[in-house]
Measured scan of single mutants.
Amino acid sequence: KNAAQIVDEALNQGITLFVADNRLQYETSRDNIPEELLNEWKYYRQDLIDFLQQLD
């Protein structure tokens, strides 16, 4: 998997990933985040941060 796929997957589930103060953050109206997504975000944290910062 790559960062773009993970960001896309999150968006499809109503979750927006973004970077604030060099930390990976998310916004969602969901009550909870599936644990497998959280684990994936932790595992790919630096890739996601790098990818999202390139988009800014």
Rank of each mutant, 00 (worst) to 15 (best):
Q13S: 07
E40Q: 08
N32C: 11
D50E: 13
N2T: 15
I33M: 04
D50A: 14
L11V: 07
L38N: 03
K1I: 04
A4S: 10
R30W: 06
Q5C: 07
Q54L: 11
E35I: 12
Q54K: 14
R30A: 08
V19L: 10
W41H: 02
V19K: 01
L48S: 00
A10E: 01
N2V: 08
D21I: 04
D8N: 14
A10Q: 01
S29E: 14
D21R: 05
E40S: 06
D47M: 14
I49W: 04
I6P: 00
L38G: 03
D50Y: 11
Q13C: 08
Q25A: 08
Q5H: 05
Q46W: 08
L38M: 10
A10T: 03
T16W: 13
L37V: 06
I33L: 08
Q25Y: 15
A3C: 07
E27T: 14
V19S: 03
R45I: 10
Y44P: 01
I6K: 01
R30E: 07
I15W: 03
L48K: 00
I49S: 02
L48V: 05
Y44V: 03
I6V: 07
D50V: 11
D8F: 15
Y44K: 04
I6A: 00
F51M: 03
T28K: 03
D50G: 06
A10G: 03
L48I: 13
E9S: 05
E36R: 09
Y44C: 02
A20F: 12
Q54H: 12
Q13M: 15
L37A: 03
D56I: 12
L37G: 01
I33W: 03
N22T: 05
W41T: 02
R23S: 13
W41Y: 05
E27Y: 15
L11A: 12
D8V: 13
L52R: 00
A20N: 10
Y26F: 09
K1V: 05
N2A: 10
L24H: 00
E9G: 03
N12Q: 15
I15S: 01
E27S: 15
K42D: 13
A10V: 02
D31C: 11
E36T: 10
L17R: 00
R23L: 14
E36G: 08
D8M: 15
D31K: 10
L55A: 12
K1E: 02
V7N: 03
Y43A: 12
T16S: 07
V19N: 02
Y44L: 03
Q46K: 10
A3Q: 02
T28Q: 03
E27V: 15
A3E: 02
K42Q: 14
Q13A: 13
S29T: 13
R30K: 09
A4F: 07
S29Y: 11
E27P: 02
N2F: 09
A4E: 07
T16R: 15
I15T: 02
E27N: 13
Y44H: 08
T28L: 03
F18L: 06
N32T: 14
D56R: 10
L48M: 03
E27Q: 13
T28W: 04
N22V: 04
Q5A: 08
Q13I: 10
D31H: 10
L24C: 03
A10F: 03
I49T: 04
R23D: 14
V19P: 02
K1W: 04
L17F: 05
Y44N: 05
D31T: 12
E40Y: 06
D56H: 13
D31G: 10
L38A: 05
Q5L: 09
G14F: 05
L24A: 00
N2G: 10
L11W: 12
Q25M: 15
N12S: 14
A4G: 07
D47P: 07
I49K: 03
T28N: 04
Q25H: 13
V7E: 00
N39Q: 13
L11I: 09
D8L: 15
D21K: 05
Y43K: 12
P34I: 03
D47H: 09
P34N: 06
L37Y: 06
E27L: 14
Q13K: 10
Y26L: 03
D31R: 07
D21N: 11
N39D: 11
Q53P: 03
L37N: 03
D8T: 14
A10P: 00
D31V: 11
D31Y: 08
Q53N: 13
L38C: 09
N39A: 14
R30N: 10
F51P: 00
L11D: 04
A3N: 02
Q25W: 15
I15K: 00
P34Q: 05
S29K: 13
E36A: 12
L11M: 11
D31P: 12
L24F: 04
P34L: 04
V7R: 04
Y43F: 12
P34G: 06
P34S: 09
Q53W: 07
A20I: 14
Y44D: 01
L24T: 01
L48W: 01
L17N: 01
I15Y: 09
A3L: 07
L17Y: 02
Y43E: 11
L55P: 10
A4H: 10
A10L: 03
Y26V: 05
Q46F: 08
E36Y: 12
A20W: 12
E36V: 09
D8G: 11
A4P: 06
L38V: 09
L38E: 06
N12F: 11
A20Y: 12
Q54G: 13
E9Q: 06
P34R: 05
D56V: 12
V19M: 06
V19G: 01
A4D: 06
L38Y: 07
E9P: 00
L17W: 02
Y26G: 02
T16G: 04
N32F: 14
R45G: 07
L55C: 09
W41M: 06
L37T: 06
L48R: 00
K1P: 04
Q46P: 04
D50F: 11
E9K: 06
E35Q: 12
R30I: 08
L11C: 13
I6D: 00
V19I: 09
E36I: 09
R45V: 10
I15H: 03
T16L: 13
Q5W: 06
L55I: 12
F18Q: 04
Y26N: 01
Y44R: 07
L37D: 01
A4W: 11
Q46L: 11
R30L: 12
E35S: 10
N39K: 12
S29Q: 13
T28E: 03
D21Q: 07
V19Q: 03
R23W: 08
N22L: 07
N12W: 10
E40H: 05
N39F: 11
L55S: 11
W41A: 01
K1S: 04
R23N: 14
E36C: 06
E40L: 13
E40D: 11
I15P: 00
E36N: 10
L17V: 03
Y43P: 03
L17H: 02
L52A: 01
K42E: 14
I33P: 05
K42I: 14
A4Y: 07
Q25I: 08
Q46V: 08
D50P: 04
E27K: 15
R45Y: 15
K1G: 03
E36F: 09
V7A: 03
L52D: 00
K1A: 04
T28M: 04
A3G: 04
T16E: 06
K42V: 12
V19D: 01
W41P: 00
Q54P: 09
L24D: 01
Q54M: 12
N22I: 05
Q53F: 08
I15R: 00
P34W: 03
A20S: 12
Q46M: 08
V7P: 00
D47R: 09
V19Y: 14
Q53D: 06
L55H: 12
N32D: 14
I15M: 03
I15C: 04
D47F: 08
K42M: 14
F51V: 02
E35A: 10
L52F: 09
E35R: 08
Y44A: 05
A3W: 05
L17G: 01
L38R: 06
L48E: 00
R30V: 08
Q5N: 05
T16F: 15
L52I: 06
I15Q: 01
V7D: 01
N22E: 08
W41L: 07
L52C: 01
D8K: 15
N32S: 14
N12T: 12
